[in-house]
């Protein structure tokens, strides 16, 4: 599908990537408009269920953007998120959905350009994968 524009849910940490997104905006850095940012107090708040629900509800991809390793405001939330993202990936594999649709990224509040690059990278990845296999069949 050439004109496929993916919908990507981003779980973004209040202390880093959300501020990075803000910085990207105020620095006028361009990035694809495919992401929908959901602010969380810490990526440690994210459970596997949040990631799966986002995909079930129509996201083509999901990524969690947490603080750089070792700089989590709540000490270890980003490491917990990393484990849960890994767990979500293996669950998706079990039901034949590409695990690459879910990713974990780390960035600081000062990295507006990294936020934009990650959004570009993820949009490209999902474009290559195509629409979510949950779309196209309508059972509702």
């Amino acid at each position: 599908m050439n004109n496929f524009e993916p919908l990507i849910a981003v779980f973004s940490c209040h202390y880093c990537s959300y501020a990075a997104a803000d910085l990207a905006g105020s620095s006028r850095i361009q990035y694809p408009p495919n992401t929908r940012i959901i602010k969380v107090p810490c990526t440690g708040r994210i459970s596997v269920n949040h990631i799966l629900r986002a995909l079930e509800c129509g996201a083509d991809g999901v990524y969690v953007a947490g603080c750089l390793e070792g700089t989590c405001h709540f000490v270890s939330g980003n490491f917990k998120a990393k484990q849960r993202v890994q767990s979500a990936k293996s669950l998706l594999g079990e039901i034949n959905i590409e695990p690459e649709r879910v990713q974990m990224y780390f960035m600081s509040a000062a990295e507006g350009s990294k936020f934009a690059n990650v959004a570009k990278e993820m949009t490209e990845t999902i474009k290559e994968l195509g629409p979510s296999p949950l779309k196209g069949t309508n059972t509702q």
Binding site: L52, L55, E56, L91, E94, I95, N96, I97, P133, L134, T137, T139
Partner: peptide, 8 residues
């Protein structure tokens, strides 16, 4: 997971 599998 069950719902996602069936939806697929």
């Amino acid at each position: 997971l069950i719902r996602m599998d069936r939806k697929q």
